[in-house]
Amino acid sequence: MASSIRVRATSNGDTTEVQALIQHPMDSGFVKDAKGEIIPPHFIQQLTFEHDGKPVFLADWGGGVSKDPYVKFAFKGGKKGDELKISWVDNKGATDSTTAKIQ
């Protein structure tokens, strides 16, 4: 199955800029469907980025983050070819992870 996570990490030699796009409904639990029934909450709660075995970024999310969430950050270090490990867990306990090469 294709990963739910798309990552672009680029190093300029000094810092690495990371952009991630994740496929997830991010249902807040406040929205009603066409029948007027509440769509139960289903959203990513934690998203972590690790480089060289250390966390470089940790996101705690609620249902207020947009569907198919996007996040952007940057960290010092990271070389071209280094691996960046990304993983998430949602409120139903589902998880996904991927590894991206820094470009």
Partner: peptide
């Protein structure tokens, strides 16, 4: 004004730049 005020919280370890972009509802 959202039903739940907190949308996202990011933890920034040492070495990570204090700059975040995201999309919220």
């Amino acid at each position: 004004e959202n039903p739940i005020a907190l949308v996202a919280s990011y933890r920034i370890p040492a070495g990570t730049l204090p700059s975040v972009g995201n999309r919220i509802k």
